[in-house]
């Protein structure tokens, strides 16, 4: 236990921020795209920046913009945010052995800043006998600053570009969803959930007005993957 005990130091925080700089750069580029889309969806600069600062989850923010309307479909937007971010349940669960020793205050602060990339780097760090959980906080903060700052820049850029459909900017959101799907693709096992999600969305969009087809597609993909998984031993 003693040799395994997690530490939480400012050196670990700085190391996390340094090691995650490349991830932060990627997050910066993606944030510019999000800012342009947020402007296009009708969010004010402060609203777009507040969303990035408080939600801090790119894919779910893009999905929310796709559903944005007047009046805002609150329930559908929130359910979609839960659906898209549900994978974080797994990342957090995997951190249990490491973070449990920190005490709840530090553990739950650290968890608020996790993202796919920093989580993966931190676990690699831990496998190489790094015990400093502040690595996750440092990396998370680096990405957060890049994400929030670039959202503001992108929004300003979108406001300058203006004129939507001739420039094809109305297509930026679907185009981003397509590239995110490619980035998420792990192999043929993902084909079932992909088809279930797309097919269910088409059916539900034809039957029910509003953005519910997004939530329904996510649920169908989840069930398809769960049904296709082999039994636990």
């Amino acid at each position: 236990m003693a040799e395994d005990a997690a530490t939480f130091t400012s050196a670990g925080l700085r190391r996390g921020a340094r090691r995650c700089l490349a991830l932060a750069a990627a997050s910066f580029v993606y944030g510019i795209g999000f800012g342009v889309m947020a402007d296009h969806a009708g969010l004010a600069l402060g609203e777009a920046v507040a969303m990035s600062a408080l939600v801090y989850a790119g894919a779910s923010q893009v999905v929310a913009l796709g559903m944005w309307d007047d009046p805002i479909p609150f329930l559908a937007v929130w359910l979609a945010a839960i659906a898209v971010n549900a994978r974080y349940l797994l990342l957090g669960a995997a951190l249990r052995p490491w973070l449990a020793g920190l005490g709840p205050g530090r553990a739950y602060l650290t968890l608020g800043l996790i993202s796919d990339g920093t989580w993966a780097l931190a676990l690699r760090e831990r496998a190489a006998s790094g015990r400093d959980a502040a690595f996750l906080v440092g990396g998370g903060l680096a990405l957060w600053v890049a994400w929030v700052g670039s959202t503001g820049l992108g929004h300003a850029l979108g406001a300058v570009l203006g004129a939507p459909s001739a420039l094809g900017l109305d297509f930026l959101l679907p185009a981003f969803c397509a590239t995110i799907a490619i980035a998420l693709w792990r192999g043929r096992g993902d084909l079932g959930p992909l088809l279930a999600g797309g097919g269910t969305a088409l059916a539900v969009a034809a039957l029910i007005d509003g953005p519910w087809y997004v939530v329904a597609g996510g649920a169908a993909g989840c069930l398809a993957a769960a049904a296709g998984a082999t039994h636990d031993a």
């Binding site: 349940l89 993902d190 088409l202 969009a205 597609g217």
Partner: peptide, 23 residues
């Protein structure tokens, strides 16, 4: 967290992207 639960949760993001793109 069983293998079934894990597979289901991991598949949601790509299914949501497909759901947005299909229409």
């Amino acid at each position: 967290i069983t293998r079934r639960v894990r597979a289901g949760l991991e598949a949601i993001p790509i299914a949501v992207m497909a759901a947005i793109l299909a229409p």
